[in-house]
Write a protein that binds this DNA or RNA. Structure first.
Lengths: 362, 362
DNA sequence: GAAGGCCGTGGAAGCGCTCTCTTGACACCG
DNA sequence: CGGTGTCAAGAGAGCGCTTCCACGGCCTTC
């Protein structure tokens, strides 16, 4: 058992090319034992373990992941597939926050994040090949569009899978979603409590789950308060700035008497704000406005927007937890997790006061 | 050479567990030959190649990446390290756009993207271990903070490396950056051509490269136009909304005569907008405002902000190209790429007209 | 005091692939 | 007609690791 070899650079030696064999030799044990230390098997005596650990440090040994993966049949990494259309990707901090959540939880489990953003059909074919080839131990799918064959194919091949955002009906995978319906309901409840009586909504398109759910929540809220619903108070837009402006103008024409607007996104709420200002309506005195997402826009708007904040990071973390659960104990049970939202009240809905946001971003 | 085996599910057979050995047997050739087909070596006769390809399809064979990687000593994946502080991550679509650019270019090269977002010191230690262990063939580092030891360590170990955003002096790695200085200069040139004569700036902190470069560009622009610089026209903020508001109020107090403001970010420009409105100054009639980043905020502001648009996707693509170049021909030469910006003119700086953005996002 | 059990360790197989080296078939040349 | 070059194909080693199995030493137990 050599104490200090002049031939081996201590500490930060390059490590590349140093094999477990070399470590074992240095420590005067067999490769099997060295491997046991690496995988901290309980059946290694303390002295031997220490010796091996010293050799590892001395030689700067780093295990070869390919060799390990070849025999264990695990890759210790998970694929995160983002098929989100560009618009949503770029207009809110949804994407970075989600990735941060996922990344943090994966890191805690010593798993790696392989990011996959297919942009074309060709990409999607390759993607499937990739996921099926054992490159990853599991897959996180973010908001797939309805007819995507991917989840089905993955499940058929027995690859653990979780979906972020409620998947199209027919997909039986586990998923995590934000409680859009309840978020919208809370927004309406707030407007009602502020004394608003003719609450309109700028909704998202009905073929997108969040659009639909938030509209449903809006109606729930009115029912709850005993306010009559009215189709003339509902305008459908497409989550864009222009769509929001158009919808707001339309609402002002058909229902000039409205005293509040709940928009299904901050982008649309902010668009509504500019239309209202141009029309000479004051916010929040004449009309209260509430957005959704609590994006940077909400804070930057004038007046700052009351908005529904979603626990996006938490969604990422929960996705990983769910995936890990289905990997570890190969429980086939599909699970659904619904995360609750939080209403952040700002000036756009709260007459005559300078409300602080109550929480800072980050 | 069996034509059709009843034992093997054709087409979508699970593929897991099917080895190259099995393919070779099915095709009646040796494993070596099958491998040659896989790596399309030229020294395989057309008939044999076809036979092997048929067997691959029939068995649904997918190569085992670990086995391949073990012998080739390549991983065919690159690590993308994001150490960006949360603020910038979340306030602009910088991050998704960059990743999309990187992802697209990697896909074209059949490389995988391993995303690494260390959040703590511990994470960073593990990160380094990971990168040095041969998990990745190269590394893209996004905007590292000055004293990060990572680039040095990576270079010392001979791991190909490129940096996004100008790195701290001392780091000799190749990098891609956006021409912040020129972008700011173009903004000033525009304001001058609009007839503005007392142009102020809300600059970023001097210890951040973009902050510094944009301030320098602002000064360049004034020099170019023969307008005198004046320290009382320069306010330093921290890229936040609050910072922007504060700076704008300060400028209004000390230089009530200013007729234009160039802010180093849309967030700060938007904040300036709300302060100006509260002060009863009209934009753009009294005061023109220009932002930076062309974020969604620019379009949503009222009036919409003229802003400097950066080619973020292109930056991502260029990073990958640079990395690939340094991997393929192991050229040690460090290279610097500076990408040029584009000024998107909107109403906030263009008196008496309803300018269209000229380009849509996405 | 011999038989059995336990526990730490080593030997060795083998994961699925690539690639060097060798072989065999065939054509061409002197 | 033997020698040589060319080219497709096969044999086999080996990448670095995990893990099954066997083994030897020591402590119990009757």
């Amino acid at each position: 058992m050599p104490r200090e070899s002049a031939l081996t650079t201590p500490g930060d030696g390059n490590g590349r090319g140093v094999t477990l064999e070399a470590v074992a030799r240095e420590a005067g044990v067999s490769r099997a034992t060295a491997s046991r230390v690496l995988n901290n098997s309980p059946k290694v005596s303390p002295e031997v373990r220490r010796a091996v650990e010293r050799s590892i440090a001395r030689l700067g040994y780093v295990p070869n992941p390919a060799a390990r993966s070849l025999v264990t049949r695990r890759s210790d990494s998970v694929g995160v597939v983002i098929t989100e259309p560009t618009s949503r990707l770029f207009n809110e901090p949804f994407f970075p926050r989600l990735l941060r959540g996922i990344s943090g939880e994966l890191a805690a489990r010593q798993l790696q994040l392989v990011l996959l953003m297919p942009e074309s059909r060709t990409d999607e074919t390759r993607l499937e090949q990739y996921l099926l080839s054992g490159h990853v131990d599991g897959v996180v799918l973010v908001s797939l569009h309805g007819d995507d064959p991917l989840p089905g194919d993955l499940m058929r091949h027995g690859i653990p899978l979780v979906v972020g955002g409620r998947p199209a009906s027919g997909v039986t995978a586990s998923y995590v979603d934000v409680d859009n319906r309840d978020g919208a309901r809370a927004a309406i409840r707030h407007l009602v409590s502020e004394g608003r009586r003719r609450i309109a909504t700028i909704a998202g398109p009905a073929d997108m789950a969040p659009g639909l759910d938030r509209l449903t929540g809006y109606r729930d809220g009115l029912d709850e308060a005993g306010q009559a619903r009215d189709a003339s108070l509902e305008a459908i837009a497409d989550f864009t700035h222009e769509g929001g402006q158009h919808a707001m103008r339309h609402l002002l024409e058909t229902r000039p008497d409205l005293d509040a607007v709940f928009a299904a996104s901050d982008v649309m709420a902010s668009a509504a704000l500019s239309v209202l200002r141009a029309a000479g309506r004051s916010v929040p005195d004449d009309i209260a406005v509430v957005g959704y997402d609590d994006s940077p826009l909400a804070e930057a708007s004038d007046p700052p927007l009351t908005s529904v904040r979603q626990p996006i990071e938490e969604m990422g973390r929960e996705l990983v937890r769910l995936l890990a659960a289905s990997t570890e104990r190969s429980s086939q049970a599909t699970r659904r997790v619904l995360l609750s939202t939080e209403l952040v009240i700002r000036r756009s809905s709260h007459a005559g006061s300078a409300v602080q946001a109550g929480r800072d971003r980050g």
